[in-house]
Computed example of a mutant assay.
Amino acid sequence: MAALTSSLDLAEVFSESHKVLSRVLAADFGGLCVSRPGAPGQYDWPMVHEMPPVFFERYPEIADECFVSAAVIQRPNTVLRDSEMMSRQAMRNCAMYAHCREMNMPVERVMSVLLDVGLGWHGGFTLYRESRRSFSDQERAFLQRLTPILARTVRNCRLMEDAVQRATLMDGLFQHGGLESIVLSPPATELMRTPRSTGLLHRWFKGAPCGRLGLPVVLLDALERLVRAETLGLCAQDVLMFRRPERSLKVTFLALPLQQGRRPWALLLQEVSHAVSAPGEWRKRLTPREMDVVERVLKGWDNQTIAEDMGSSMNTMKTHLKRIFVKLAVPSRAKLILLAQEQNAERV
């Protein structure tokens, strides 16, 4: 019990536990495998004891003929010995028996249990003996009493690993320069969001219909389509662009690793300015006031917005623009913006 509760690191806790179990149950080899989240047919082997690495490298080749997993999967949380899995003759004729002998790891006796961890995970704990002495009824009963504790330990360790991975991923998302993030667990749970994401949504979707969690319906609908498409194994549009004259909002929908059997999604929000910088040589031809006007025109602002921002009348603003067009030899605002783009490109 002390060994099983000594850590929340799965490899560490079972390494310590096996020192006790191998002595009490007289086992020569032992292994614990745990299914990967979202992939019940694929396994991690966080704890092995004196077993050749090649065993795990070649295991996929014989997985379909593994008599141990085929037996315990039918009776989860029940300890089984090899004699309860198949006859001695059938065991000697199976691929796994031959595979182990080829690796100089002769296996004559086996005792194993499938640990039903819950939350979409399961694990397999197996002990092996080189000698032909069977695991006794007493030894089987001992491991059976430990089975609920083993399952609970695997569950707790997996939950801790899951939380650490999630925190690392979220930290990476939230610290990515220029991005705001909202993480959801569809259909109606918000896991977290960056501080400035709410203000960004308010600026872009003010007055737009909102649904669950106060999020714009257009984003919730897009997320629903993506979740449905993933379930069906299909592709769907995972980037939305919202445009204004002076800037755009890019919303990227990112599927995250499964968390407790459910897949969270991150909405990555990136605001991009369309502003074109004024070429430096224009300052020699325009007054400081006219340069102020040009910089606002290059941001895509209209005359009314520029006038209000600069505290000028519309007539004064139009006069500034006429003088700017004459000095730079352009006929319109569009040509002014195009000229700035061209001259910036030439400098690059």
Rank of each mutant, 00 (worst) to 15 (best):
P60I: 00
V48R: 01
A151K: 07
D64H: 03
A334K: 15
D171E: 08
T5W: 00
D302S: 02
Q138Y: 09
L298H: 06
S313G: 09
R133G: 13
P106S: 15
F14I: 05
L213F: 00
P60H: 02
Y128D: 06
P106D: 14
Q270Y: 02
Y43S: 00
I149F: 03
M291Q: 10
L256F: 12
Q138N: 11
A39D: 15
E130V: 11
C33V: 04
V294T: 11
N104Q: 14
Q175A: 15
A26S: 12
H99N: 14
P52S: 11
S136G: 10
L200V: 10
N77P: 07
Q42V: 12
E346H: 05
D292M: 06
V218M: 14
C94N: 12
L249H: 01
A208N: 11
W282A: 03
V348P: 00
Q165V: 00
P279N: 06
A95H: 15
V154C: 05
V348K: 05
A229M: 05
D309F: 02
E61L: 08
G41P: 05
L267N: 13
P187N: 07
Q89R: 14
R145F: 05
E12M: 03
P331W: 15
M86I: 04
S313H: 08
R23A: 12
D162Q: 11
L10A: 08
E246N: 00
T153Q: 07
R285K: 09
G31V: 04
T168Q: 15
S313C: 10
P60T: 02
L4M: 03
L220T: 14
E16T: 04
S312C: 15
S112Q: 03
N344V: 01
A39V: 14
T287P: 12
L219P: 11
M1K: 11
R193M: 12
R155E: 15
R58M: 10
T78L: 11
R323A: 02
R228G: 07
E342S: 13
T316I: 03
I149C: 09
P40K: 06
L286Y: 06
A98I: 10
A151M: 02
M314N: 01
E346M: 08
L21A: 09
L25C: 07
E65N: 07
R228L: 07
M291F: 09
E57I: 04
A90D: 08
G31T: 04
F205Q: 15
G118A: 09
V154P: 01
G38N: 14
P40M: 08
I149V: 14
S15Q: 15
C100D: 04
G199A: 04
S69P: 00
I306E: 02
